[in-house]
Nucleic acid binder design. Structure first.
Length: 203
DNA sequence: AAGTATCC
DNA sequence: GCCA
C-alpha cells in the first residue's frame, strides 16, 4: 500500500446532483461555442481517445506539428475560448487556496473505451497553483503515482461529483485514467464521462 | 507515460 | 480486469 503524494486531496461527492446538473448545462453551452476536437500526439500525430475543448483565456491543445501548449484561440474555429462559468470560478475559490483565478478549464470527454495514459501536467508556466479536477457522469478508474518515472501507482474509482486537487508535492505527479465504467451514472443522457480541470498557467 | 501492446 |  503506497502513500498518496502530499498535497493530493480527494473530495468525494463534493457536488450534489443539482450542482452536477447545473455544471453539465454550463459545459453544454461551452461546447456549443467551442466544439469538441480530437487532440493529436506531438510528432506521431496519433489521436488521443478523448475529445476535448476549453474555456478560459487560455486553452490546452496539442497537434502533430506544434505539440502540447496553451493558446488563446480554438484550433478549429479560430475563435477565443468562451469564459469559465462563474460556478467553476467559485469552486476554484473554495478548494484551490490560490488567490488568483484559473486561466484555463480543460474539458475532456470520455466515451466508450476512451482513456488517458499516465502523464504530468507540466505545460503551465507556474506550478504554484494546484490543478483542480471535477468528475461528471460515469465512474472511472483513476491512477496516480509519484513525480518520478516508474514510481509505484495507486488506483481508485472516481464518481460523478467528486473533486480532486493536485497541489503541493502532488502537483507534478503522474496520473491518468485507465478506464471508464459505462452505465454507472445517469447524469449524462448518452453516457460517458466529463472531466474538467481548472489550471493557472501564468505566475 | 496526454500512446499502445502484452502479460498475469 | 487491472497492472506494469
Amino acid at each position: 500500500m503506497h502513500e498518496l503524494p502530499a498535497g493530493f486531496r480527494y473530495l468525494p461527492e463534493y457536488l450534489d446532483r443539482l450542482a452536477q446538473e447545473a455544471m453539465v448545462d454550463e459545459i453544454r453551452a461551452v461546447v456549443a461555442a467551442a466544439p469538441l476536437f480530437v487532440p493529436r500526439m506531438p510528432k506521431t500525430g496519433k489521436p488521443m481517445s478523448v475529445r476535448m475543448t476549453n474555456c478560459g483565456t487560455l486553452g490546452w491543445v496539442t497537434d502533430q506539428d506544434r505539440g502540447y501548449r496553451y493558446q488563446e484561440l480554438h484550433p478549429v474555429t479560430g475563435l477565443p475560448w468562451p469564459p469559465i462559468p462563474p460556478v467553476l470560478l467559485r469552486l476554484w475559490q473554495e478548494v484551490s487556496g490560490y488567490p488568483q483565478p484559473p486561466e484555463a478549464c480543460l474539458v475532456n470527454f470520455y466515451e466508450g473505451e476512451a482513456k488517458m495514459g499516465l502523464h504530468q501536467d507540466r505545460d503551465e508556466r507556474t506550478f504554484e497553483a494546484p490543478v483542480v479536477s471535477v468528475s461528471l457522469g460515469d465512474q472511472c478508474l483513476f491512477r496516480i503515482g509519484g513525480t518520478a518515472h516508474g514510481a509505484p501507482t495507486r488506483s481508485f474509482r472516481l464518481s460523478s461529483g467528486d473533486v480532486v486537487v493536485l497541489g503541493g508535492e502532488s502537483r507534478l505527479s503522474f496520473h491518468g485514467v485507465d478506464r471508464v465504467y459505462p452505465g454507472t451514472s445517469t447524469l449524462l443522457r448518452n453516457g460517458g464521462r466529463i472531466n474538467l480541470t481548472l489550471r493557472r498557467v501564468t505566475p
